[in-house]
Amino acid sequence: PEAADLRSLAKHLYESYLKNFPLTKAKARAILSGKTNDNAPFVIHDMKSLLEGEQFINCCHLPHQGQQRESTGATLTELQREVELRFFHSCQSRSAEAVSEVTEFAKSIPGFSILDLNDQVTLLKYGVIEVLSIMMAPLMNKDGTLISYGQIFMTREFLKSLRKPFSDMMEPKFEFSVKFNMLELDDSDMALFLAVIILSGDRPGLLNVKPIEELQENVLHSLELHLKTNHPDSLHLFAKVLQKMTDLRQLVTHHVQVIQLLKESEVDLCLHPLLQEIMRDLY
């Protein structure tokens, strides 16, 4: 393909990324390093600060909210369980919104919308958790993660202190993110990488692989050229980025296992319908 076409594709995907994803890496890094004019994020580091920070988190979408038990007379452990579940539900609401954002981004990839509709569904079903996992990386550092559009910083130690299996949910993402962030990709690189992930021709059940592989090939060329231009001093960056796709699949497999455990162990758990659709029969 012509270099000009590849550059134009990179520009198009970057613009779509900026349009569809509200918290960019540039903004997240500014918040994490304190280089922003906005207020510093509210820090959640224990149960007390979680309760205080709850008002910042959008947690009104799930019917479970209306079913909170009366707190009077409940023991501290019971209260803690409720807070953890409420937090989990608000995470689910945000994840469902994020799936919608990723869908809009996918639709903006040239050629995606003319693929067989069933294949579009399959690409999203298998790609979206990988995409969301990779998009967490810019929000994280070794000590914690931004949540709620960057308004809150939740510490890694606090997430590790939650009861099992909640406590197992985020640690692999921190381990992945700390390594991934060392590649120092920016938002324009991320936009192309996300498109490459979405256009994976080896997802189970695809009906027509060839056009998907052709689209991915083109985006891969664009990513390779873009990384060479954008990071002229970073040797083998293209290969290093592609290697991360293997780690991502392991990350998703682990995530699905934790959700399975949660479904078995938490009677109060109600999984968001959109996330249920994605998780059903996945791996």
Binding site: N20, H61, S93, A96, E97, V99, S100, E101, T103, E104, K107, L117, N118, Q120, V121, L124, K125, H272, P273, L274, E277, I278, R280, D281
Partner: peptide
């Protein structure tokens, strides 16, 4: 199709506001 009706809906709607 029934199994993934929300994903279908998200894909077929031209803009993002979908009742999630």
């Amino acid at each position: 199709k029934e199994k993934h009706k929300i994903l279908h809906r998200l894909l077929q709607n031209s803009t993002s506001p979908v009742d999630l």
